[in-house]
Amino acid sequence: MRYRIADDVAWVSEEDLDGGEEPTAYLTRVPKGPPILLEGSGCVVWLALDEGGTLEEVIATAAAMTGAEPDSISDDVATLVDQLVVIGVVIEE
């Protein structure tokens, strides 16, 4: 199973906005929304999902971004990815 950001999602991160210190992403399904906010490690997982891949690959990318051990974050990443799939902003294929 591979995961990627859904085709109808628009998103922007603080990086795009020359913005704040904490990783933050703002996203929505266009055109009807609602707007969604991902902060901190939630944003890191989102940026990992932007590269797409299996759950293991997403976990590895997120771990590399944060310097964490993959095993220590795998459950949390899996839970968040599941939630993002449920609300339709991430698709599994």
């Binding site: 906005l17 913005g19 703002y26 609602p34 969604i36 906010l37 902060e39 990443v77 968040l80 939630q83």
Partner: peptide
């Protein structure tokens, strides 16, 4: 891990976003 929040929080998001 950080979470996700809808509408109420993002309305306080930067205007640029």
């Amino acid at each position: 891990m950080g979470g996700m929040s809808e509408e109420t929080d993002v309305r306080a998001a930067p205007v640029a976003a």
